[in-house]
Design a binder for these strands. Structure first.
Lengths: 237, 237
DNA sequence: GTCAATAGTGGCTAACAGACACTAATAAGT
DNA sequence: ACTTATTAGTGTCTGTTAGCCACTATTGAC
């Protein structure tokens, strides 16, 4: 049998594959806190519990797993997340009562303001501060997944400016530093923080922000590709 | 309907999920070269082509995706790989002619000597030097996957001693440096390389290696957890 | 004993993070 | 207008660690 004959006779429905889903850990920054989007499950299993936004691949609508996550995030927030990166895939026999299941998990970052209007009007999705996560039990193994996502983003705060994607398009260096500090749970040296960003030439100056009180800060926008840049040296851990 | 009733009525075979497989990029070091295990495909599709070792989840035999990879590597090499880490999951509609498919890819490292006997006796698996990969077309998107795995391992050579897992249990620092240099494709500073490993206290001295020519080198073994250690500062890129 | 080869060290320089005091620019109060 | 509080941003010194490269150490071959 040659390959075309094989493909013609191939019937995928004969093979029972593990349940495959895609989930997103969507971070933002608001009110001095790093927050994560959780949605209330409307259906069984784990109905009523808070869970990560996610779902199944739509073979007609999605060309790739990235498409699936993007679609799911747009469904919940109304906008496309400007930063998306695969975290890890979790697959075992016990994480879902329906049987052996696999979920491909992504980390995504978005500015709070760009999706706040939609989320505030729906009752099945909300931002949860990462500091209060311990108080809430999430569906499936999503609590553990969230911890893994936070650990990774925390690491990135030490050697990249990826956390900038939790801020609006234009942001100030003090704002960015406060995001990093919220992630790391401790203050950073202002000078060290600013120096390395300046040396790496990752930002474009766009103007000045009127101050609430005190000297106004310079507004910046990320240069294209700034999210991929990694510093050779970590900040102190 | 409550959850137990839902679960009792749930029939997974009604849902056609994308084809799910697991693949491994298994690295080793031998004859001054970093090599990758490839296996010849005995069945359609892409019959006869070289591909990454991998396969499907066996829901009875495997409790987790990690189990699946471990099992697949043991099938090909006869031994369990001492280092295993998820690389990334690739999923789209075009990578497999059978339709929408997803593969969870792992990077694994193993000492050449620990599996050479088995591999040399079989004709459907062989070590391919990464330097000659460009000359061989691999099945599916495995060529691209391999490039991603190499890029990641190369990064790790700059800030960890993970490449040590391509060497036997006991190895010398000059041997380890040669692995890193083979990965990076350029020489490293001997003093810088040794100094950081000594400072991080990652190795246990076990004796001396009789020299082929020249002064004998000290043999070391990895301390437990040494693979998870990351240096705060990268070697020069 | 000398030489070739490889292992391992000493010690200087350069780059960059930490620390912290300093200056700069704004709003509010008098 | 001046003072003060507040936040933004800089100057500059110290400490750590990688780059560099010359040096010493230990072996086998002759």
């Amino acid at each position: 049998m040659d390959e075309s004959a094989y493909l013609a006779s191939y019937d995928r429905s004969r093979y029972v594959a593990p349940l495959l889903s895609v989930d997103a850990v969507l971070f933002t920054y608001h009110d001095e806190q790093v927050k994560v989007l959780v949605v209330r499950r409307s259906r069984h299993p784990e109905q009523g519990k808070w869970a990560l936004p996610g779902g199944f691949v739509d073979e007609d609508a999605d060309d790739s797993l990235d498409d699936t996550v993007h679609r799911k995030i747009v469904e919940k927030t109304g906008v496309k997340a400007p930063y998306l990166e695969q975290l890890r895939t979790f697959g075992n026999s016990s994480r879902d009562k329906r049987g052996w299941s696999v979920t491909v998990v992504y980390t995504a970052l978005i500015a709070h303001q760009s999706c706040a209007p939609l989320i505030e009007t729906v009752s099945d999705a909300k931002w949860m501060a990462v500091s209060e996560l311990a108080d809430h039990e999430l569906a499936f193994d999503h609590g553990m997944i969230l911890q893994a996502a936070i650990a990774r983003l925390r690491q990135k705060a030490l050697y990249s400016i990826v956390p900038a994607f939790t801020l609006p398009d234009e942001f100030t260096l003090p704002e960015l530093q406060r995001v990093h500090e919220a992630l790391l749970g401790k203050p950073l040296e202002k000078k060290s923080f600013r120096r390395r960003i300046e040396q790496a030439d990752l930002l474009i100056e766009t103007g000045f922000k009127q101050s609430v009180s005190g000297r106004p800060a310079t507004l910046y926008r990320l240069k294209p590709g700034a999210g991929e840049y990694t510093f050779l040296r970590n900040l102190e851990q």
